[in-house]
């Protein structure tokens, strides 16, 4: 890899929504960067704020009840402060997005080709319709749609889920984006198709050098394709690092819990799964200090104070986490509590 170029720099981004019940702090101060040619995976459970974070980058969460703080610098421009008109030029062109549900992301009454052509010509009005059609066919071939020349005339309902997701990727690629945001791009697809789509994304990164933000809850997908990972819990990044860091030296008890509670296709079943007791807090009234505290088996008095997201490991300055436990103590805990540090306790929940 050549010298990494920072594509996106997000600094202390906060998003809150005013609701009837109170203010929901969906994203509570997150900081991360994305380099060209890398895949950053944002991992977390539903409600952790991972989708809201990336949709905010695209200006898709703007509304009367939404409030934003912080910065997201892309190409010398702050995406959070940018006007709607400015964002419209960036969105779909330099930053493209692939959504989870390919069924609802395409317009059912327009032919596939027409939708890709529109995507191209919105951002490059000088391209003629005929040229755009050629490019559409070319894009569809690139993402592995057979007989693309005929299939530009198909409607979305004539395509399967996997094929529709390929069309979404083709549209995302249409204006050679520098940054691709993929929000659960494989979740709605059957397993063999998932693998094909991940291959497609990998190829895209290698060929174009684009940066990819992959939002997912699937740690298998992460292990397969990510370079770096940010783990989110209840609106905050609790740990960030390389693939190696996160899988083989996880620092935050929530990450241990996530890694511990997944069933694995390559492992024999071993009685009870270590589950994280309880459930994520309400973002209307999150607990004081560390948000994971009420579910954390290792919480102590200091956890009512919010730990900074900094590296506590002298040997890995690029591996920050939000946990007060001493690194040495964490290693012991992880070894004692059956490799991963969480007891298989009762799971009665209130």
């Amino acid at each position: 890899m050549t010298a990494p170029e920072t594509l996106l720099q997000v600094e202390d981004l906060r998003v809150s929504f005013a609701t009837e019940e109170g203010v929901v702090r969906a994203v509570d101060g997150i900081t991360f960067t994305v380099q060209a040619g890398e895949v950053l995976a944002i991992v977390g459970e539903s409600g952790s704020g991972k989708s809201v974070s990336v949709m905010t980058l695209m200006g898709l969460t703007r509304g009367q009840n939404a409030r934003f703080e912080g910065k997201a610098m892309f190409d010398g421009r702050d995406l959070i402060a940018a006007s709607d008109a400015e964002l419209r030029k960036v969105r779909g062109a330099a930053i493209a997005m692939v959504f989870q549900d390919p069924m609802s992301s395409l317009d059912p009454v327009y032919r596939i080709g027409a939708q890709i052509i529109e995507q191209i010509r919105v951002h490059e009005p000088k391209v003629s319709k005929a040229q755009a059609l050629d490019r559409a066919v070319d894009l569809m071939e690139r993402v592995g749609i057979p007989r693309a020349r005929d299939r530009v005339r198909s409607y979305p309902h004539e395509f399967s889920g996997g094929m529709r997701q390929r069309v979404m990727i083709a549209m995302a690629l249409a204006n050679s984006p520098k940054l691709l945001i993929a929000d659960e791009p494989t979740t709605a697809l059957a397993v063999p198709i998932q693998a094909q789509i991940l291959d497609e994304l990998r190829r895209l990164r290698d060929q174009t050098g684009a940066g990819i933000i992959l939002v997912t809850h699937d740690l298998g997908v992460v292990a397969d394709i990510a370079d770096r990972i940010a783990v989110m819990y209840a609106g905050r990044i609790v740990e960030q690092g390389t693939l190696e860091d996160l899988f083989y030296d996880p620092q935050h008890p929530y990450t241990w819990g996530l890694l511990g509670s997944i069933t694995r296709v390559d492992r024999n079943r071993a009685g009870k799964l270590p589950a994280i007791p309880g459930q994520p807090p309400s973002l209307l009234a999150p607990p004081e200090g560390c948000h994971f505290r009420p579910r954390c088996p290792h919480a102590f008095d200091r956890c009512t104070e919010l730990p900074e997201l900094v590296s506590r490991l002298p040997e890995a300055p690029e591996h920050p986490d939000r946990c007060w436990l001493e690194p040495e103590r964490k290693r012991t805990l992880r070894q004692v509590g059956d490799q991963i540090g969480l007891a298989t306790g009762e799971t009665v929940i209130s």
């Binding site: 063999p192 998932q194 693998a195 298998g220 693939l243 190696e244 899988f247």
Partner: peptide
């Protein structure tokens, strides 16, 4: 089907051959 499932362990995932 089995080959298509990524294993949540980067080392083992890479060492696997996966006939898709």
């Amino acid at each position: 089907l089995l080959a298509a499932i990524p294993i949540p362990d980067p080392h083992e995932n890479r060492s696997r051959t996966r006939p898709l």
